[in-house]
Design a protein around this nucleic acid. Structure first.
Length: 550
RNA sequence: GAUUGCGUAGCUCAGUCGGUAGAGCAGCGGCCUUUUAAGCCGUAGGUCCUGGGUUCGAGUCCCAGCGCAAUCACCA
């Protein structure tokens, strides 16, 4: 048998598990007469709702009536129909447990609202339906109907009178007890993660409610939601590297937006007083626990407001969201912290218990600097000495204020209590080049950053609306651009023109929605709150690079 | 980009000093009408991430690569 076998054009051979499932699919269809991919079903009840319709009285009444009828029949009496006061339901869900007891099969179905047992007795359903239930696989989607009762052991269940297929699953299921725990597989096969790990689905349901509440909050305060371009000829509004793309018909290079800012400000020029956008931004930067190349932010601009207006807005919004999350946790029976020393709402985030009590902590950049560095930030000599002491060797090459900024990040930011949302206010103008300086002290500007749990959740600004100053600052920024930067950084002359038309003074705000959702849902990674985070593309077998070379 | 750790059956994981590749779940064939990770009997399932090296012999040691994670850097 050592002669070379003919080279077979091997189609990817499916695993035995998949082959077995295909065989079952065929059998269900050909022998049992079930359509393996289902059909429209009206009147389906969510599993949680079906469970809620269980009535102990109806169950007990039915059981005793059935027992009497059986006894009467055994004694040769007339067989009267048994009164059944139990709620009848039709449900659908994915099989996540399957116990075959011979002539009785217990299945657990799962949908987005939870799990519910279906008990299939050989005596209560057609022979075909019983075979289907007996040979159903983990991952199959089943439709069942019958009364809501419970088992002798007390498990609420649907006592099936009919069972059919919603969809045959051909994929090997994850481990039934541990679920899918490999983070890579959870992200790559999110559709499996979502049913195998109910916590995952819950996080995304919470995310949806959070964003919905944000909209209601903003709408109630009279902000108008607008949509601005993702495809932009000039990527402005932030200092990030953009993704590039191309429009064929116009033969035009385009950038994916890195921020909506410059368009939202045009809206203010046009006369909108209060606008917001919940938007996706795309930044061609690194990936880590708090960065995904595409992420959701909310930006807000309010004419005749300033960074203080935005502070009140942000504080109320985040506080209200935290209150509703505490209510959600309580309703879900999760642990809810007692009110903290500041009066809570308190939400867990990893090992932390974050207290969202109003007012949030407010601290001036300058004061926090003094506490952390032990010197005045304007005493550049002392600041530089501190920088050297911290081992910031490139200190000599930097401008005074950049050294201030580095020293601040090194020894002042760590002083911020991660368990209290904290506004750091009045940054030096020199490290916030596009922000409007204070009139009474131009070395400082109208900017704050909010930190929660050690993460920067967002900044706000008193926006610059003087077109000449804006132009000068843009131009200066362009001069400082390196070779790579200058390939995508261009002066947005139309934006300057818009400012010349006249933009009212304004407050502007940006909040990282993903990070906020992380905090509110106790998620450690941004990838846990983004359904389909960007992953490296799969190379078959994991070693394609070595095989094919480049 | 740097450092560290991990990569073994569909999934979750063991694998000792370098000496013939293991378990549980899932699968397949049986038994069972009250299970709660059901149980019992039987059975099948492997590119030990990829490539190279050391060795009589590599899942194990060494080198390179790929992927993931953590930390750091980057990220108005």
């Amino acid at each position: 048998m050592s002669e070379t076998l003919p080279e077979e054009p091997t189609p990817l051979s499916e695993s035995e598990i998949v082959a077995a499932r295909r065989a079952k699919l065929k059998r269900f269809r050909d022998e049992l007469g079930f359509e393996p991919y289902g059909q429209r079903e009206d009147g389906l009840v969510a599993l949680a709702d079906a469970r809620a319709r269980f009535s102990e009285e109806a169950h007990v009444a039915y059981e005793s009536a059935a027992k009497e009828a059986k006894a009467a029949a055994a004694a040769g009496g007339a067989v009267a129909p048994v009164a059944d006061g139990r709620a009848q339901v039709k449900i659908a869900g994915r099989v996540v447990q399957h116990r075959d007891m011979g002539k009785l099969v217990f299945l657990f179905l799962r949908d987005a609202t939870g799990d519910l047992q279906v008990s299939v007795s050989k005596s209560a359903v057609s022979a075909q339906a019983f075979e289907l239930a007996k040979h159903a696989d983990y991952g199959d989607i089943l439709v069942a109907e019958g009364p809501i009762g419970r088992t002798n052991k007390g498990e609420v269940c649907v006592w099936a009178s009919a069972v059919s297929l919603g969809a045959k699953s051909l994929a090997a299921p994850p481990e039934k007890w541990h679920g899918l725990s490999d983070p890579e597989l959870r992200y790559r096969r999110r559709y499996v993660d979502m049913y195998a790990n109910p916590e995952t689905a819950k996080v995304f349901a919470m995310r949806a409610r959070i964003i919905s509440r944000i909209r209601r909050f903003m709408d109630a305060r009279g902000y108008l939601e607008v949509e601005t371009p993702v495809l932009q000829p000039i990527a402005g509004g932030a200092a990030a590297r953009p993704f590039t793309t191309h429009h064929n018909a116009l033969d035009m290079q385009l950038f994916m937006r890195i921020a909506p800012e410059l368009y939202l400000k045009r809206c203010l020029v046009g006369g909108m007083r209060k606008v917001y956008e919940i938007n996706r931004n795309y930044r061609n930067e690194g990936i880590d626990r708090s960065h995904n190349p595409e992420f959701t932010a909310m930006e807000v601009y309010e004419a005749f407001g300033d960074y203080g207006t935005m502070m009140e807005l942000t504080e109320s919004l985040i506080h209200d969201l935290a209150v509703s999350m505490v209510e959600e946790r309580r309703a879900a029976g999760l642990r809810v912290e007692e009110k903290g020393p500041n009066g809570g709402p308190v939400l867990p985030w990893g090992d932390l218990a974050i207290d969202y009590a109003k007012p949030f902590v407010r601290v001036k950049f300058e004061d926090l600097f003094r506490r952390g560095a032990g010197c005045e930030m304007r005493d550049f000599k002392a600041v530089r000495a501190k920088a050297r002491e911290l081992g910031l060797h490139h200190e000599a090459k930097l401008d005074d204020w950049l050294v201030v900024n580095e020293v601040f990040e090194e020894c002042a930011e760590p002083l911020i209590d991660p368990c209290r949302p904290t506004f750091v206010t009045d940054y030096p103008s020199a490290v916030s080049p596009l922000t409007r300086p204070h009139r009474d002290d131009p070395t400082l500007c109208g900017r704050w950053d909010i930190f929660i749990g050690g993460m920067e959740v967002g900044p706000a600004y008193t926006e610059l609306n003087d077109p000449d100053i804006q132009l000068a600052k843009f131009t200066e920024q362009l001069k400082g651009a390196d070779d790579e930067e200058s390939t995508f950084r261009t002066l947005d002359e139309d934006f300057i023109e818009a400012l010349r038309v006249g933009m009212p003074p304004a407050g502007g705000l940006g909040i990282g929605i993903d990070r906020l959702v992380m905090l509110l849902t106790d998620s450690a990674s941004i990838r846990d709150v983004i359904l389909f985070p960007l992953l490296r593309s799969m190379s078959a077998g994991g070693g394609a690079g070595a095989e094919h070379g480049e």
